[in-house]
């Protein structure tokens, strides 16, 4: 992979050029003491040294609410599919979120390709940045998601006075040539990048005491563990853990009809297995009607089912769920470590 250097003073012009170019630029900004991805109006708003964002950048590829079709009722009903997409630059995406998007790429293109996701994805450029200040609940190193080798067009690493830029695609390279002032990276600068990444690893506070490959098997034999009931007792079924998760991709589909009772649209919105009615079916049935089975299901998704289906982990260790959970029960790391201990 080719590497360049952008001096820090040249970063603002690069971002400004991107903002003024044809595409919308989305990046992490400060929000009430935390960070959130949002449209950048000017470079000054961009915070590349953030820990993590409230919501994952997946929201720009798989929006919380999205129209799928428009229809008109009548003798001969009219139906028109909708798949809106515009050029987008996601700037400052952390490696774990890049890994999560790689999972979504597979999930949304396997079996029944999801045209709404894929059309947005195709128009999106991903400019990553290494996470050097991890949030206290993250455990990326244990899952191999602290750095990324693929899944980006460009990847930045802050090495002090400058950024090393790894070029991940020709699209990325073109943007760099067109909009940034760069120079070749020296061996010393590449060594510096390694050392920054190494130092960052030491800043993670949570560690998984099991290798990710062993998780499916561990979960497989933990179905009857008392942990599920004990821990889920406090669950509020509030869905915070699934809404903030970069790898969750479940949605609900509903119709909305205009006041003329003729025209309408079918839309999807994020949904998830921790909500009480997620597995509810006609006739008052619910496949997972209690907190315990929902709590267990989510952990199985993160550590077993997704792996078995897509050969990618269903959790990238970002720690957002643990930060969002008021009941303090949502961290997969805590559950996996506990089950590992029980299994000894």
């Amino acid at each position: 992979m080719e590497n360049k250097i952008i001096e820090k003073q040249n970063m603002a012009p690069f971002v400004d050029n991107l903002i003024n170019a044809e595409a919308e630029v989305i990046g992490p900004k400060r929000k009430d003491g935390k960070y959130a991805f949002d449209k950048l109006i000017e470079t000054g708003e961009l915070c590349l040294d953030y820990d993590t964002t409230l919501l994952p950048p997946k929201m720009y590829l798989f929006p919380p609410k999205e129209t799928l079709i428009k229809f008109e009722l009548g003798k001969e009903p009219k139906v028109e599919p909708v798949a809106e997409a515009k050029p987008l630059i996601l700037f400052g995406v952390h490696p774990y979120d890049i890994k999560a998007i790689e999972l979504l790429d597979v999930a949304f293109s396997t079996t029944n390709p999801d045209i709404n996701y894929l059309s947005k994805r195709e128009k999106a450029v991903i400019i990553g940045v290494d996470c050097l200040n991890p949030n206290p609940n993250a455990f990326c190193p244990s899952l191999g998601t602290a750095t990324a080798e693929t899944g980006f067009d460009l990847m930045l690493t802050d090495i002090g006075d400058s950024y090393v830029v790894a070029i991940g695609s020709s699209k990325g390279e073109q943007l760099l040539t067109k909009y940034a002032e760069t120079r070749e990276a020296s061996q010393a600068e590449l060594a510096q990048r390694n050392s920054e990444r190494q130092k960052a690893l030491a800043r993670y506070k949570v560690t998984l005491n099991i290798s990710p490959e062993e998780l499916p098997q561990l979960l497989g034999k933990s179905w009857d563990s008392p942990w599920w009931k004990e821990k889920s007792e406090k669950c509020l079924s509030c869905g915070s853990c699934i809404v903030v998760c970069p790898t969750c991709f479940c949605f609900d589909v509903q119709d909305d009809i205009a006041l003329n009772l003729k025209e309408g649209e079918r839309y999807r919105q994020w949904d998830g297995c921790m909500l009480a009615d997620f597995a509810a079916v006609a006739g008052e049935g619910n496949f997972r009607g209690d907190k315990e089975s929902r709590f267990r299901h989510r952990m199985y998704r993160k550590g077993k089912y997704i792996w078995e289906r897509y050969e990618k982990l269903g959790c990238v260790g970002c720690g957002r769920c643990a930060s969002a959970c008021l009941a303090e029960i949502a961290s997969p790391a805590e559950t996996f470590n506990k089950l590992k201990e029980e299994s000894k």
Binding site: G33, A276, A324
Partner: peptide, 14 residues
């Protein structure tokens, strides 16, 4: 489902 879902979707800090 609880207000938290819409609150998180709105991007609020809790």
């Amino acid at each position: 489902y609880p207000v938290c879902v819409e609150c998180k979707l709105a991007g609020n800090v809790c």
